[in-house]
Amino acid sequence: MEAHIRYHARHRLEAFVGNREIGNLEPEDQERVLRLRSDYESRFRELIERGVAEGAFEVESARVASYSILDMGIGVASWFHEEGEFSVDQLAYQHGDIALRIAGRQRID
């Protein structure tokens, strides 16, 4: 999650255009990009599913959780400014914590 946030905060224009303009690509390029995005999402979902299986997470739907987490990161590209209240690292750490909460992090002592 932290890498996801850092990318979207540091490459705001590229991320914003890349995420919002997929529909304007040629069909074969659009299909390739959507396939890559699906693979990216499935990696997040698989991590959540593994965490559920190990008892570290408790979530009703790993797919919904992964979409929520990814969308939260993508949104950073539209509002984050380096001169704002938080540094990229502070933002990444906060979003990492929020992502764990979305995944239903369970306290393990």
Rank of each mutant, 00 (worst) to 15 (best):
W79A: 00
L34D: 11
R63V: 03
S38P: 02
G75D: 11
R107G: 06
E21P: 14
V52R: 02
E58M: 00
E83L: 11
V59P: 01
I102D: 05
E49Q: 05
G104L: 01
L91K: 00
L36H: 06
H8D: 02
A62D: 05
D109N: 13
D89P: 10
G104K: 07
E28T: 01
R32G: 14
I74G: 02
M1Q: 10
D109E: 10
I22F: 06
E49H: 00
R63K: 15
I22C: 15
I48P: 04
R32K: 12
N24G: 10
F44N: 03
L34E: 13
S38G: 09
A9F: 07
F86G: 01
E83I: 15
A65T: 01
I69D: 06
A3Q: 13
M72L: 13
E21K: 08
A3W: 15
Y67R: 15
A15S: 12
S61I: 10
R43A: 11
E2V: 01
R37C: 12
L13G: 06
E2M: 01
M1I: 03
D109F: 03
V88G: 02
F16P: 00
A15P: 05
V88A: 08
H11F: 11
L13M: 13
H8E: 10
S78A: 14
V64F: 15
V76C: 06
L100H: 04
R37A: 10
R10Y: 07
V52E: 04
R107E: 12
Y7G: 00
G51T: 05
E14M: 13
E2Q: 10
A62S: 08
L34F: 14
A56Q: 08
H4Q: 12
Y93R: 08
I69S: 00
V76Y: 05
Q94R: 11
E60W: 08
L36T: 00
E14V: 12
G23A: 12
D89E: 14
I22S: 09
S66Y: 01
D29S: 06
E82S: 08
G73C: 10
V52S: 01
I74D: 13
M72V: 02
A65L: 03
G104Y: 12
E54S: 07
E85P: 02
W79H: 11
A3N: 12
D71H: 12
I22V: 15
A92F: 02
L13S: 11
E2I: 02
E54I: 06
F44W: 14
E41C: 08
V59T: 01
E54N: 08
A92Q: 04
L100Y: 15
E2R: 08
S68G: 05
W79P: 02
H81N: 07
E28R: 05
E85T: 09
Q94S: 10
G75W: 09
G18I: 03
A65D: 04
Y40N: 08
L34S: 11
A15Q: 04
V59R: 02
R107H: 09
R101C: 05
E2F: 00
N19M: 07
V59L: 02
A65N: 01
D109C: 02
V33R: 09
R101D: 15
G23L: 00
E21N: 08
